[in-house]
């Protein structure tokens, strides 16, 4: 049994300790926003935050998460509004098929938390590990800059 906090809610999970967090989220907690793309941490569609850090949940065993805080794509927005990154994504019409975008957004939220004014090189260094088969990279880049500016403006 593992006790953790997911999107602010305390949950107790009964799963083998080597079960990846991805499948705990999707199959046991009903949170399907985090996606399965490759299972080997190559695509980033499974990206979540654990205690504020980006992690690829497809290779992260639940046994390591006792007492941890997990944030998924479903936990970014408040009841009142979407996260600035999500808003930027919509303003730039980033998604095409959309399957990779939860991971792209989670990586971006962590990027902007670590670096409030990323250059294009910074963006490359953080987001090149998130794969998009539809080719939304140029719009993602614009959306990251947009979100950075919006977050700075809000103070």
């Amino acid at each position: 049994m593992t006790k953790l906090v997911v999107n602010g809610k305390h949950v107790t999970v009964s799963a083998d300790s080597d079960t990846p967090l991805l499948w705990v989220l999707r199959d046991k907690l009903g949170l399907t926003g985090t996606k399965f793309g490759c299972g080997i941490a190559q695509c980033g569609a499974c990206t979540v935050h654990v205690d504020g850090q980006s992690k690829r949940s497809c290779v992260l065993p639940i046994g390591e998460l006792d007492g941890k805080q997990v944030t998924t794509i479903e936990g970014l927005a408040t009841p009142k509004q979407l996260h600035a990154v999500q808003q930027a994504w919509l303003a730039e019409n980033v998604p095409q098929c959309g399957y990779c975008q939860a991971g792209q957004i989670m990586t971006t939220v962590a990027l902007l938390a670590a670096n409030a004014s990323p250059t294009d090189e910074d963006i490359d260094s953080a987001l090149s590990a998130n794969l998009c088969r539809c080719g939304t990279y140029p719009r993602i880049r614009r959306a990251v800059h947009r979100a950075a500016a919006a977050i700075k403006e809000r103070g």
Binding site: I73, E74, L82, L90, N93, P95, G98
Partner: peptide
Amino acid sequence: DRLDGRAKVDGS
């Protein structure tokens, strides 16, 4: 703007 954008950015 894309009408299907929202569901693709909020995990729904």
